[in-house]
């Protein structure tokens, strides 16, 4: 592998990893703070991609479709939490898994009903099309660089909210001792609605920004869900920092595996996960 290819693949891996982080952060946040295992989280990524496609058809404006998709996602997340997830807090993980698997089927049926099963695509927005010269011969798509930077910005915003704001303090406190938070006069159910809504929005935004890079197909949600679980298990369930490190690891390893050992590439991240779990059974950054 020459240096140019190596560099491009490294960028691809990092960019894919950052996108995975965007999705996995919501999954791990909802699990860490609320104790909810949401298998339908990947479906939110799918919903994001389809929404982006749908609004892009109508408006031809990527920015507009991104914003409106994010708003719809937030409302959808709040609705799902208030009607379904809120019944799960006192139940065990098996009940949560059954409910959220059911939600996957519902979302898949809706997708098939509303948008059909043919692969769809969204154009890269004009302002972000084209490539950037990195070195003499190496070019890299501007849009991928944009996605990477966008994910970094979201990660930074997430870090800021969780570590530097009162809302973040309450979220962390709720993660540590729910009962005590309520005993300080805080409405924890409102906090949970916010966290779940934010988690759904993160996955949906990931689907939106991925739409111009990926083909929009049925099953894309399940596929990304499995990758996210690998990320979250590697990083430590509930740890945002762990999700970031895990996502970058999975992104880079997966990308290089598909270039270097294409025949067994799909196995490599699971082997990575197994090795990490052998060394740290609770994941890299478990609490």
């Amino acid at each position: 592998m020459d240096l140019a290819i190596f560099l491009v693949q490294l960028l691809n891996g990092l960019q894919y990893g950052l996108l995975l982080f965007l999705i996995a952060s919501g999954l791990t946040l909802v699990f860490g703070v609320m104790g909810i295992l949401n298998l339908a989280h990947g479906s939110m990524y799918m919903v994001g991609a389809y929404l982006a496609w749908y609004f892009f058809q109508g408006t031809e404006s990527f920015l507009f479709s991104a914003v409106i998709s994010a708003v719809i996602a937030l409302m959808l997340g709040v609705l799902i939490e208030r009607t379904l997830i809120c019944r799960m807090y006192k139940r065990n993980h098996l009940d949560q898994v059954l409910l959220t698997i059911g939600m996957i089927f519902v979302f898949n049926a809706l997708q098939s009903l509303l948008w059909g099963n043919d692969p769809l695509g969204v154009d890269v927005p004009d302002a972000l099309s084209g490539s950037l010269h990195l070195t003499g011969v190496v070019e890299y798509p501007v849009y991928r660089i944009f996605v990477a930077l966008f994910c970094v910005a979201i990660a930074a915003a997430l870090y800021f909210v969780i570590n530097r704001t009162r809302l973040g303090m309450l979220i962390r406190a709720g993660e540590s001792n729910r009962e005590m938070v309520e005993c300080l006069g805080v409405d924890i159910s409102r906090l949970y609605t916010i966290v779940f809504g934010a988690g759904v929005m993160l996955a949906t935004i990931a689907g939106v920004v991925a739409a111009p890079m990926a083909s929009i197909v049925p099953g894309m949600g399940e596929h990304v869900l499995i990758s996210c679980f690998v990320v979250v298990v590697i990083g430590g369930m509930g740890s945002i920092k762990g999700a970031l490190v895990g996502a970058l690891l999975v992104g880079v390893v997966d990308t290089f595996a598909s270039v270097v050992v294409p025949d067994v590439a799909s196995m490599i991240v699971y082997i990575l996960m197994a090795v990490i779990l052998l060394i740290k059974p609770q994941g890299l950054f478990s609490n």
Binding site: M169, A173, E175, E179, M180, L184, G185, V186, D187
Partner: peptide, 29 residues
């Protein structure tokens, strides 16, 4: 939480610390 908002505060057995909050954050929150 609504009972507490009426004007009750609770110092529980075992102190109810939040393991991931600093002293300052315990007070601010």
């Amino acid at each position: 939480w609504q009972r507490m908002r009426r004007g009750i505060a609770y110092v529980p057995e075992g102190r109810g610390m939040f393991h991931n909050l600093t002293v300052r954050e315990h007070l601010q929150m």
